[in-house]
Amino acid sequence: MLEQNLTGKRVVITGANSGVGYEAAKTLVEKGAEVILAVRNEQKALAAKETILKGSPKGSVVVMGLNLADLKSVGEFAQNYSSRFHSLDILINNAGVMIPPYQTTKDGFEMQFGTNHLGHFALTGLLLPLLKTTPNSRIVTLSSLAHRGATIFFDNLDGSNGYKAMKFYGQSKLANLLFAKEFDNRLKEHGILAKSIACHPGISSTNLFKVGKKDAPGYLKVLMNLFLQSAEMGALPTIYAATETSLNGGEYIGPDGRGNRKGNPTIETPASGVYNEETMKKLWEVSEKLTGVVYDFTNA
């Protein structure tokens, strides 16, 4: 059953000024949560905050700067958050970069792997002390249908030996899924009651067929809306993962329609053989080494 009253709950959502993250923020504020929009573009987030509060004037929204493509910024956000707040009920690792031309983060990581996975890995690890001391906390990490058929290129994580944007996007989204599962395994192993859950939004008509500032032609939008879903629908798996009381941690939530492209949220089975123990452990070790963030699983 979805938790309807989130009054007193504190939620951090990365990349929450547009798309699925914005829609999730809107709904969680409506349910009474205090939502922190952790974003790179604070101006856009302030505009988003204004719109959200118009719909939920009693809600609470805070804007804080965070650039996941810069580990220094991630560290500063975690420090600022921890000095300002003393609890964290829900962390939603939502922000993402999709199929850019080859480029690297401030720390020299391939942009998609560095932002989508490593940035969130570092952020979650740095906020873990608060997650451990907040009763029944949750960490929701967004993956994608692109995890299907994807591989972690351990010998070419930075893309310097060849780069294909879509393959590296798939790698980053597979990494998100493996991280969420391995994290939940480790939380349970150490008797920590926080739950880590993965989800994906299906395919949203809002983020496809757009080049630069040009929108798709009207007829194409109509066609896409027949087969794909809106950002509001795309946000439902995130909201379900964050608030469904029956979840135990370790689940993967996605739309229930054909091919999991659209529909209402349900527990989904990832692609066959995805949860490879050796790969998950190797990814974890590599992520700690690259980010310099080592998770403290001592029970609070």
Score class of each variant (00 low, 15 high):
216 A>W: 02
38 A>K: 01
15 G>E: 08
243 T>N: 05
198 A>K: 12
270 P>T: 13
285 E>A: 15
89 D>R: 08
184 D>C: 01
79 Q>F: 12
122 A>K: 00
239 I>N: 10
135 P>H: 07
40 R>P: 11
293 V>F: 08
272 S>T: 04
47 A>Q: 09
286 V>N: 09
168 F>H: 02
187 L>Y: 13
111 M>K: 02
67 N>R: 01
218 G>D: 13
278 E>F: 02
151 T>S: 15
48 A>I: 14
130 L>G: 04
196 S>L: 06
7 T>S: 15
143 S>L: 13
57 P>R: 10
164 K>T: 13
21 G>M: 03
184 D>L: 03
23 E>Y: 09
35 V>N: 00
255 P>Q: 05
287 S>R: 00
52 I>R: 08
230 S>A: 09
1 M>F: 14
282 K>T: 14
273 G>F: 10
91 L>K: 11
206 T>L: 12
93 N>L: 07
206 T>S: 15
237 P>T: 12
291 T>F: 06
40 R>I: 13
224 M>H: 11
259 G>P: 06
132 K>I: 07
102 Y>R: 07
195 K>T: 04
285 E>W: 01
212 G>Q: 09
151 T>C: 04
159 G>P: 00
70 D>Q: 01
298 T>S: 14
236 L>Q: 15
122 A>V: 09
34 E>G: 08
266 T>M: 09
89 D>I: 03
76 E>C: 01
58 K>T: 05
251 E>F: 12
39 V>T: 11
280 M>N: 01
132 K>Y: 10
110 E>W: 00
295 Y>A: 11
172 S>Q: 04
77 F>C: 06
74 V>S: 02
134 T>P: 01
79 Q>C: 10
62 V>S: 05
115 T>V: 15
298 T>P: 00
262 K>H: 11
246 S>F: 05
194 A>V: 15
34 E>D: 07
112 Q>K: 10
131 L>E: 13
186 R>Q: 15
90 I>C: 09
253 I>V: 14
177 L>W: 00
92 I>Y: 09
28 L>Q: 12
195 K>M: 08
120 H>Q: 06
251 E>V: 11
66 L>N: 01
152 I>H: 08
3 E>G: 06
45 A>Y: 00
166 M>V: 08
125 G>A: 09
61 V>G: 06
269 T>A: 13
216 A>I: 04
280 M>D: 05
212 G>V: 06
94 N>V: 13
142 L>Y: 02
172 S>K: 03
159 G>S: 01
118 L>R: 00
240 Y>Q: 04
141 T>S: 15
199 C>P: 02
172 S>W: 01
198 A>H: 10
51 T>Y: 00
282 K>M: 09
54 K>F: 03
200 H>C: 10
186 R>V: 05
93 N>Y: 02
276 N>S: 08
217 P>S: 11
143 S>Y: 11
254 G>Q: 02
248 N>D: 11
230 S>N: 07
287 S>D: 03
258 R>V: 13
33 A>Q: 14
27 T>G: 00
9 K>F: 02
179 F>N: 07
290 L>E: 01
145 L>Q: 11
199 C>I: 05
178 L>I: 12
202 G>T: 04
26 K>Q: 09
60 S>K: 15
167 K>E: 13
152 I>Q: 10
61 V>D: 03
29 V>N: 04
8 G>S: 08
